[in-house]
């Protein structure tokens, strides 16, 4: 019987197709406890992360409830989060530009396996979201709408942590929620997806 027939998942050796399991039975001295079958093996790396000057400006903006992008001199594209340079022109950014807060969903996926302590109940939508005025999108979670009604071109706005709870982190925006505006036609999203 495979997993398809048994949603509870009988994954014992006896349930495997003939010939797939070749390990013979093992003789073991008598043990009093029930035999261990699974163990948890945590693997962790602890880094000190330095976002750099450009992203520091972006994160401090979030703390103030503003989404700050950056633009190179003479350029039209505003990059958010800024990395200190225009990746197309290869020139340093010189100007800080506030974008959003309203935004458009440019891509999304439905998440069925939540990950991390702060993941919302599944299924939920993880999306790329382009703030108005920006050339590129930010990652975000779309809530406040059933997951199967989210679509590309949908208009959303950020939901902020209360000002007193904000620090200079990306978590200042808890999620994005729909606003009552017509969808942006896919044609207008060309080059931004």
């Amino acid at each position: 019987m495979g997993e398809r027939d048994d949603p509870a998942g009988d994954r014992s050796v006896a349930a495997m197709p003939e010939g797939l399991w070749t390990q013979p039975p093992v003789e073991v001295p008598e043990l009093d406890m029930e035999q261990v079958r699974r163990v948890t093996e945590p693997a962790t790396l602890v880094y000190t992360y330095t976002p750099g000057l450009a992203q520091t400006r972006f994160l401090r903006g979030l703390q103030e409830g503003r989404i700050l992008g950056e633009r190179a001199e003479g350029a039209t594209d505003v990059y958010v989060t800024g990395r200190g340079m225009d990746p197309v022109l290869g020139r340093a950014t010189t100007e800080s530009v506030e974008v959003g807060p309203n935004a458009t969903v440019t891509a999304f996926c439905v998440v069925h396996i939540g990950f991390g302590e702060k993941a919302p109940p599944t299924p939920f939508v993880s999306a790329l979201i382009r703030p108005d005025g920006a050339a590129v999108s930010l990652y975000g979670t779309v809530l406040g709408i059933p997951y199967d009604e989210v679509r590309i071109g949908m208009r959303v706005r950020p939901v902020w942590l209360p000002e007193s709870e904000r620090s200079a982190t990306f978590e200042c925006i808890t999620h994005w929620e729909p606003i009552d505006e017509p969808d942006v036609p896919a044609e207008e999203l060309k080059g931004h997806m």
């Binding site: 390990q23 261990v36 163990v39 945590p42 000190t48 750099g52």
Partner: peptide, 25 residues
Amino acid sequence: VLRAPLTIGYDFKRTTGPVIGAFFT
């Protein structure tokens, strides 16, 4: 410039099989 600790970790679950399972038991 900001600095912050960043921890990347995952609790891997491993099935032990009959030999390692008996050893751990």
